[in-house]
């Protein structure tokens, strides 16, 4: 029975103050604990603690058997001022990210538009084009290593077949082309994802607005530029951020196809972190941790800046 006087205060958990069952239901702590404990435990043990430890490592030299020697900002200054490989990796990753994101997002939009205008077999095409997204990087990487093979890879065979044999390269073996070759493969894998998202967003556009645009003398190009792209802006920004972050952290594909070679041409920050930790003549987990932390902060900074710059100032209700 509720008390005659309302003496409830926020935080009161005794029986008399329990509210009726709405979303404002405040369950007893035991229940909360039951539901949340497993997740919190996993999170603390395998996410939060490792992050903290990475920060800890980054200001130490961590030798084998966990021997840790405090070096303060030593690792960071080495990375920033005394490590040309780090900067090569940064440069490679930056090129990969900027060019890759742009082609990825706008290529996805282009593909989605192709399907949006109702070509035959739209549904089958949609399913086929999404297939690479689902495949492991190992599968994708190995197949494309074969495709790029100097002697019997498809790319070179086609070039030779149409008489451009002089352009045939060892695509992954030559420092000039390796990064672009890996980028092409990465795009091959991910274009389908952006395409799917854009296609869904296009279908969510109100048909009457597009009809009004037609009546306002818009051909398909004008509709695209003045109406469709502005209305897709939230999705565009979202995908750009997602793609950007994903490419900044790229490891798997590079490792599988070139291991960062030839001659650091495809070395990315992630592969460098791995190499410094597990594939270096000295064993030290501190330095690569510092590089990881540094890169993490840079990614966050970029994401924040990008979101602020590109986000919609007012709501785009429709």
């Amino acid at each position: 029975m509720p008390p005659a006087l309302d003496t409830r205060r926020p935080g009161d958990r005794n029986a008399a103050s329990r509210q009726r069952a709405t979303d404002g239901w405040r369950p007893p702590i035991a229940t909360l604990a039951l539901f949340l404990a497993p997740a919190i435990l996993v999170y603390v043990g395998f996410t939060a603690y490792p992050v903290v430890r990475t920060f800890y490592n980054s200001v130490h030299l961590v030798g084998p058997n966990g021997a840790a020697e405090f070096v303060g900002t030593g690792n960071f200054s080495t990375a920033l001022f005394a490590d040309p490989v780090f900067w090569t990796a940064v440069r490679n990753t930056a090129i990969f990210t900027v060019v890759g994101t742009t082609v990825d997002v706008f290529g996805g939009l282009l593909l989605a538009l192709c399907l949006f205008i109702k070509v035959p077999f739209t549904r089958s095409l949609r399913v086929i084009w999404f297939l690479p997204v689902l495949m492991s990087y190992v599968v994708v990487g190995i197949i494309w290593v074969w495709i790029y093979d100097y002697e019997w890879g498809v790319v070179n065979l086609l070039l030779r077949a149409i008489g451009l044999g002089t352009l045939a390269h060892s695509w992954l073996g030559s420092p000039d082309t390796a990064l672009w070759a890996v980028m092409a493969t990465h795009l091959w894998k991910w274009l389908g994802f952006n395409m799917i998202v854009f296609l869904a967003a296009l279908h969510a556009l109100p048909a009457e607005v597009l009809g009004a645009a037609e009546l306002d003398n818009c051909g398909w190009l004008a509709k695209l530029v003045y109406i469709i792209i502005p209305m897709l802006r939230p999705t565009l920004v979202n995908l750009m951020v997602l793609s950007f972050v994903g490419k900044m952290m790229i490891f798997d594909l590079v490792w599988i196809m070139t291991q960062g070679g030839p001659l650091w041409a495809t070395e990315t920050v992630s592969t460098y972190v791995y190499k410094r930790a597990f594939d270096w003549n000295t064993f030290d987990l501190g330095y690569p941790s510092a590089v990881a932390v540094l890169w993490f902060l840079i990614i966050i900074a970029f994401v924040v800046v990008m979101s602020l710059l590109l986000r919609q100032r007012d709501r785009l209700e429709f």
Binding site: Y43, F46, T47, V51, N57, V273, F296
Partner: peptide, 17 residues
């Protein structure tokens, strides 16, 4: 927030752990 955490921030420590 686990969604935006890059794996590189975790792998080395997880290795140790």
């Amino acid at each position: 927030s686990g969604l935006v955490l890059p794996p590189q921030m975790l792998i080395l420590s997880l290795f140790q752990i």
